[in-house]
Simulated scan of single mutants.
Amino acid sequence: MTIVRMDNVSIVVEDLDATISFFVELGMILEGRMMVDEEWAGRVTGVRDQKVEIAMLRTPDGHSRIELSHFHAPAMASDHRLAPVNSLGYLRVMFAVTDLDDTLARLRQFGATIVDEVVNYRDVYRLCYIRGPEGILLGLAQQLK
């Protein structure tokens, strides 16, 4: 049997409100927020006695989601936010956008910065990497006609 779909990507953040605002500005839709502190959650994650507030956001097409998590307990174990793009492990999420320049202008108001530069990939895409709130690394790609 193969997988059916990918449900979401989870990102742990310190400032849940600011990060939600950033992703909503990007065009994602907030589906809801809730506190998860029941015993079953620690058995799934291996982090016992956790108290974590989560927010689920979905893309406008309804196919992809990001789960933002803020741990109230226990304390954050490590920090990978400023890892360079050649670091091991999960690194970034790529979004297709309709207008890269407009998207960048709007996200700059939320502290986003371009990692290096916007490039034209073989006249197929204009794309770049950005750092959003808390150093979250995202890729943005605009398909060219």
Score class of each variant (00 low, 15 high):
135 G>A: 05
101 D>Y: 00
102 D>Y: 05
104 L>D: 03
98 T>V: 07
92 R>I: 00
134 E>H: 14
142 Q>C: 04
141 A>Q: 13
105 A>H: 03
108 R>L: 01
96 A>Q: 13
97 V>G: 08
91 L>N: 14
134 E>W: 14
124 V>H: 11
142 Q>G: 06
108 R>W: 08
138 L>G: 01
121 Y>K: 14
142 Q>V: 02
109 Q>P: 01
143 Q>I: 11
128 C>Q: 09
104 L>V: 07
138 L>A: 11
125 Y>K: 15
105 A>L: 14
144 L>F: 04
106 R>P: 10
92 R>D: 04
127 L>G: 14
126 R>Y: 05
140 L>Y: 14
133 P>I: 13
115 V>W: 01
125 Y>P: 15
104 L>R: 09
112 A>Q: 03
113 T>M: 07
142 Q>P: 04
116 D>W: 06
105 A>V: 06
112 A>S: 12
130 I>Y: 09
100 L>R: 09
93 V>I: 05
114 I>Y: 08
88 L>W: 02
87 S>C: 01
86 N>R: 08
119 V>C: 07
117 E>H: 15
140 L>T: 05
98 T>Y: 03
125 Y>M: 10
139 G>Q: 11
138 L>C: 15
116 D>G: 01
106 R>L: 04
127 L>R: 13
141 A>C: 02
118 V>C: 00
112 A>P: 10
97 V>K: 03
141 A>D: 09
103 T>L: 02
92 R>Q: 13
131 R>S: 06
142 Q>N: 10
130 I>C: 03
130 I>N: 01
111 G>Q: 05
141 A>S: 14
92 R>V: 09
133 P>E: 11
115 V>N: 00
107 L>D: 11
134 E>P: 02
91 L>W: 05
121 Y>W: 12
143 Q>G: 15
92 R>G: 00
105 A>T: 11
133 P>R: 08
143 Q>C: 12
125 Y>E: 13
86 N>M: 00
134 E>C: 02
